[in-house]
Amino acid sequence: MGFVENTETIAGCNVRFMRGGKGAPLLFLHGSSGAARWAPFMEKLAESYEVFVPEHPGFGASDSPEWLDGMSDLAFFYLDVIDHLGLDQINLVGGSIGGWLSAEIAIRNQTKLNSLTLVAPAGIRVKGLRKGDVFMWNAEETARNLFHDQSYAEQMLAAPPSKEGLETVLKNKLTTAKLAWEPRFYNPDLHKWLHRILVPTLILWGDSDKVVPAGYGPAWQELIPNSRLEIIENCGHVPQIEKADRFAQLVGGFIGEVTR
């Protein structure tokens, strides 16, 4: 099936897109490691949906605009992106800080959304439930802590980034710091407004997530009225990579159920 790649200029900012498949629109918002390549789970989703994968401003091949100071800027920017693409009835799916971003978009304007899927989202704080300090982890610790199945970590470590790849890693990390260094991976105001999200919402979490612990799942589920929580067993912070089949099945099943 495959995908095509292009750059769109939106509100003066160049954004790299990958897109593939046909069907209802599905917008995937990546986490702090970006979305440099078309991953197997994207291919699976593209069997049923028209999948859009932008790289956020400040990540990968997209511009780092002057105005980007925090998550609120990024959320408003994505309202521009949705208008620019002319999409409606979007199935919005976001992982980690992309999940946080998806929730921030939804509390601002959900009129163009059909469904929302949050995959191990950052964005809120439960006191005493500490997130992993990704800024303190080296490459090896990062790889090991991202996955439950260490063969994924081995694979990641076996292919260290080139010089250009390293620049992208550092660029992504810089933007992640802008968004999430302090307060650490959350917006103190977000929890107050999550009740406004009325679109059907699926929350997915790996049971052995070392970045944002699975204990956050029930907190999200309580804050978003029309939501359901699915815990994926033997899985770390990125179920879409580590359990790609299960992920695609859960997301597809959920969207099918809520789409009339």
């Binding site: 800024f135 080296n138 010089k163 390293l166 620049e167 550092l170 990390k173």
Partner: peptide, 15 residues
């Protein structure tokens, strides 16, 4: 990771 957190120096100097 302690010495050079993201943004402390430019991406270029960090590489």
């Amino acid at each position: 990771e302690m010495l050079l957190p993201p943004g402390y120096t430019s991406v270029k100097s960090m590489v």
